[in-house]
Write a protein that binds this DNA or RNA. Structure first.
Length: 958
RNA sequence: GCUGAAGUGGUGGAAUUGGUAGACACGUUGGACUUAAAAUCCAAUGAGCUGUAAGGCUCGUACGGGUUCAAGUCCCGUCUUCAGUACCA
């Protein structure tokens, strides 16, 4: 009987679905285990073989945990809002919901073919109103919250208003906007309602503010920092410019420290934690306030004289305060115009204009060129009271710290380079050196551990740490600085000028945002006739005819009814892609709930994700935002955990192996790879499906593939056309995409699953090469044969116990041990080898014992579930193999009485010797010395030393 | 520049606390079966030298050193590749 994988796989997939085998229960006596994949964006191209890699790994783990007796939650869904469907809608007019629905259907069909053990009853789609109702609900909770630094958690805005009414804001320590004003209780009481709303916006965890954003004109929307790669948009690679816009922002900066600390308690790779630490970018130091000299010469305007503006800087090295030689402001800094002297005005303005013209990208690409201009203004050193010249330069970024630095050339290379470049020019004094016995003629001295400070008044001879503390203490005494921790992490812009995203549950009264009460959610996405921005530049929702909120009827009504009394305009922006994906893990716990995003009981039972598998590209986006929202929901006491993902594994990318043919330039003639050096050639990539395992091109197939090849000539070598190969990202444009459906059709899902695992370590990037697939497919065929050793290939197992087949028992238990270790170490590639070895050995042994072959199927079933179910049922079982207990390893079957010892002389192995493991070291030595080959090797010499590691090795030295 | 990961046969990759490098596959070569092909099975396969043969010897885990009876594995230095990040004060 042949291994008819297509029929077998279809049958068991049907069986699993019909019998709801993988439905997880929300209450169980079993311990829980939650295995989650990063849910896919359902793109139009469908799945290629790279996508399922992580799903296969998590599926193996989920199935293994079921065998181990866990109640396993292993759900799947779709991150179904997003740009591609909308871009497609703009081009074709097709509603994104329709495109998305079609794509999801295709994905589902592909996923089902591979035999995953997903609990589809819990499927989520971020674009479903029943789902985004709760995304909107969480947004409202964020709006109604502020961050209390004293309690180190988020609290309700209502509580903050109570404090304001009683005490004003003097006692409040909150994470809020920089430009927050101070007010007393009576001042608060006197504020108008609108004014109060404005003030509260400075505190809310999601807030509306005019901020400098990354505007992408081609996409017609703003982008978050993590959506920009190398200065261009992640999607499409379009240019991005800075622009001031009023936008919703998320106050993620409030959670910077907790996001950093939380990393210590979770099991993620170091490289991933590192990425997050880097992104958060904590630096500890101090702020220093420099007074601008009131003796600004030449400025005739008395009002400027009286303003005496201060310049605040942030530094990580307050200990070097006496090394300040000059100051540098970012060209965009707001004080630049106030401190520039008339004499320098022209030069400064020219510099500002030149900088503004350069895009962010140009500025990044060109970091070596030093540029800057002296403003003519001077600040006053806080301790020495000496004048410090103020410069502007584009090496100082407006977006980091205060946009101004105190320049200490002796301790910072950039300051050093700047000072050296402008040495001798007006406003650039000689570099002050404050390090004892350090020569700075070659560059700055940044080794803070070893530095001894001198020429620094009260800081002289203090070590770095002490000097830092003392400097901060003295600055605080003067009221000109304080210790401060700065984070690179910026608040995240949360508005997108797009159609296909979650609408905000927000309407506007007198320009102030108002939340729609939770009971009226969801606010469904309105219909529009076109998906482009409006002619006046408003987002696509500006095209909707019915996009106004009736506060009396509590429903969305026609825009014509807007009267700004009971009917108000709704927010036109939508939420970004990461909104829905920031909390989806909790929805799976209770996906059908209509009263809450999940019930308390479900959240309490499932807690958080035990194992999360997905790609590396989400290191600083999704994985940071979902940690942020989780911590917020924890503060709100909505969930019992403050980290979403306990353990995380990044699967490596599967690369495509492109096929290259060589055209002789200017002709339609192609030469085989080995002959190309004789010609002037052009490389063309062709469909990898036209290539055999030995890199031979199917010439007839190529001629049929594209008309340009129909009349082409091919120069063969040894009767074949051999193509070149290149390993690169799997992509339609390189024609190197391999589709899992074809593999399943030709070899079966079990083969695909095993082969993807067999390719190499899960976390490593690796090329896909279909050639090797016959290896694992042959293995499954051998396995099938092992169970069909009867007449005419009939199914056969013998009913004998383990004691009668000691070799088979040994093979089995060796396999149990290794497979279990491998799964727990996520080393799936090596367990596939172990299965191959087991089947090869059992076949050689002609071992058909049921007590060996039955447990072997359980070991295999996480990897190749279909064939395991099929053979399991042939063994007479009437229920699924999926929850059968995992075999227990028994070391007694592996006990050996002898060992084939390698015998080495001076570390080089010369021969092996079989010796009993019971022997003592002395007995081993005696046996080895008695061996004739030992005498041959020694040639009469006496070994100086004999190393014997029982059970391992013997080494004779001398 | 900084941070992280990694360099092993023709290819993908194995190798526990340092203890027989190259498991398991692919590919290649030879053979069996077949009218033939496919499929299947068997054998060989790191490089080189040597022997009629059984066998023996040398080199070999990016490169150069070191520690050790013993190093792919540990230490120091160098190079290369990949990923992330970047005037972060």
């Amino acid at each position: 009987m042949n291994y008819d994988f297509n029929a077998i796989e279809a049958r068991w997939q049907q069986y699993w679905a019909d019998n709801e085998i993988f439905i997880a229960q929300n209450n169980s006596d079993k311990p829980k285990y939650y295995v989650l994949d990063m849910f896919p964006y359902p793109s139009g191209a469908g799945l290629h073989v790279g996508h399922p890699l992580g799903y296969i790994a998590s599926d193996i783990y989920a199935r293994y945990k079921r065998h181990q007796g866990y109640n396993v939650l292993h759900p799947q869904g779709y991150d179904s809002f997003g740009l591609p469907a909308e871009q497609y809608a703009i081009q074709t007019g097709q509603h994104p919901a329709v495109t998305t629905q079609e794509n999801i259907a295709r994905y589902r069909q592909q996923l089902d073919t591979i035999g995953f053990s997903f609990d589809w009853s819990r499927e989520v789609r971020t674009s479903n109103a029943a789902y985004y109702k709760w995304t909107q609900w969480i947004f409202i909770q964020l709006f109604e919250s502020w961050y209390d630094i004293a309690a180190d958690k988020a609290k309700s805005i209502a509580a903050l208003e109570t404090i304001f009414a009683a005490d004003g804001n003097a006692s409040v320590r909150a994470v809020c906007d920089e430009d927050c004003i101070s007010f007393t209780a009576s001042e608060w009481a006197s504020f108008s309602a609108t004014r109060k709303q404005q003030v509260l916006l400075h505190y809310r965890l999601t807030y509306l503010a005019e901020t400098e954003v990354n505007w992408c004109p081609e996409l017609g929307t703003v982008l978050a920092n993590d959506e920009i790669v190398n200065g261009v948009s992640e999607r499409g690679g379009y240019a991005v410019v800075r622009k001031k816009m009023t936008q919703w922002s998320m106050r993620i900066s409030a959670y910077a420290e907790r996001l950093l600390q939380g990393l210590d308690g979770i099991d993620w790779t170091d490289s991933l934690k590192d990425s997050q630490r880097n992104w958060i970018g904590k630096s500890v130091g101090a702020t220093v306030t420099f007074k601008v000299s009131s003796t600004i010469f030449g400025d005739p305007k008395p009002e400027t004289q009286n303003l005496k503006p201060n310049i605040g800087v942030f530094t990580t090295r307050p200990d070097t305060i006496f090394g300040v030689t000059f100051m540098t402001l970012a060209p965009e800094h707001e004080l630049v115009s106030k401190i520039t002297t008339p004499a320098q005005k022209e030069a400064v303005q020219a510099y500002i204009d030149a900088t503004a013209k350069r895009s962010e990208r140009e500025r990044m690409a060109d970091v070596k060129t030093i540029s800057g201009v002296f403003t003519g203004g001077y600040a006053e050193h806080p301790f020495t009271k000496e004048p410090v010249p103020i410069w502007i330069g584009d090496y100082v970024l407006a977006s980091y710290g205060t946009g101004a630095v105190m320049a200490v050339p002796c301790g910072d290379q950039r300051d050093y380079d700047f000072a050296t470049y402008f040495r001798g020019k007006e406003g650039m004094p000689a570099i002050k050196n404050i390090f004892k016995d350090v020569d700075i003629s070659e560059g700055a001295y940044a080794d803070k551990g070893k530095a001894v400070i001198t020429n620094s008044d009260f800081l002289n001879d203090l070590p770095y740490k002490k000097a830092t503390k003392t400097a901060i203490y003295e600055l605080e005494k003067l009221g000109q600085g304080e210790g401060k921790t700065n984070y690179r992490l910026r608040d995240a812009v949360f508005s997108r000028q797009r159609y296909w995203g979650e609408p905000f549950p927000v309407y506007y009264v007198d320009g102030m945002p108002q939340m729609i009460a939770a009971e009226h959610l969801p606010i469904a996405l309105p219909e529009v006739e076109k998906y482009l921005p409006t002619e006046t530049g408003e987002p696509p929702l500006g095209r909707a005819d019915a996009w106004a909120w009736d506060t009396a009827e509590h429903k969305v009504v026609a825009n014509t009814l807007i009267d700004d009394a009971t009917v108000f305009p709704l927010e036109l922006n939508t939420m970004p892609g990461w909104a829905g994906s920031s909390w989806y893990l909790f929805r799976y716990m209770d996906a059908q709930n209509t009263d809450a995003f999940a019930s308390k009981e479900a959240l309490e039972y499932w807690q958080n994700v035990d194992l999360y598998i997905g790609g590396n590209e989400h290191a600083t986006g999704h994985l940071l935002y979902s940690r942020f929202w989780t911590k917020f929901l924890y503060d709100m006491e909505c969930i019992p955990v403050d980290e979403p993902f306990k353990k995380l594994i990044n699967q490596g990318m599967i690369l495509g192996t492109s096929a290259i043919i060589y055209r002789i330039s200017g002709t339609n003639t192609y030469v085989s790879k080995g002959l190309k050096s004789a010609h002037d050639i052009e490389e063309l990539r062709v469909d990898v499906n036209l290539i055999t395992a030995s890199d031979e091109l199917d010439v007839a197939g190529l001629k049929a593939w594209q008309p340009q090849f129909a009349t082409a000539e091919f120069i063969l070598e040894d009767g074949k056309y051999v193509v070149g190969r290149a390993v690169e990202k799997m992509s339609k444009r390189w024609y190197n995409v391999v589709n899992p459906d074809t593999i399943c059709e030709n070899y079966g899902a079990d083969t695909l699953r095993l082969y993807e695992m067999f390719l190499g370590p899960l976390e490593q990037a690796k090329p896909w090469n279909t050639a090797g697939i016959t290896g694992v497919h042959n293995f499954l065929k051998k396995l099938w044969k092992l169970y069909h050793s009867g007449d005419q290939g009939a199914f056969y197992v013998s009913d004998v116990g383990l004691s009668e087949v000691p070799e088979g028992a040994k093979t089995l238990h060796k396999t149990i041990k290794k497979v279990q270790e491998d799964i727990e170490n996520f080393s799936f590639n090596t367990s596939v080898s172990v299965f191959m070895i087991a089947v090869n050995e059992l076949t050689a042994q002609k071992c058909y014992a049921k007590d060996v072959l039955e447990p072997l199927l359980v070991l295999l079933s996480p990897y190749a579930p279909h064939i395991a179910e099929e053979l399991w049922s042939k063994l007479g079982h009437t229920t699924s193999i999926s929850t059968v207990a995992f075999p227990t390893f028994d070391a007694s079957y592996l006990v050996e009485s002898t060992k084939e010892y390698p015998i080495s002389f001076n570390g080089k192995r010369r021969f092996t010797m079989e010796l009993s493991l019971d022997l003592s070291k002395e007995e081993i030595e005696a046996a080895v010395m008695a061996h004739e080959k030992t005498q041959e090797q020694l040639a009469g010499r006496t070994p100086k030393k004999v190393i014997i590691v029982p059970g391992k090795i013997v080494n004779l030295v001398g």
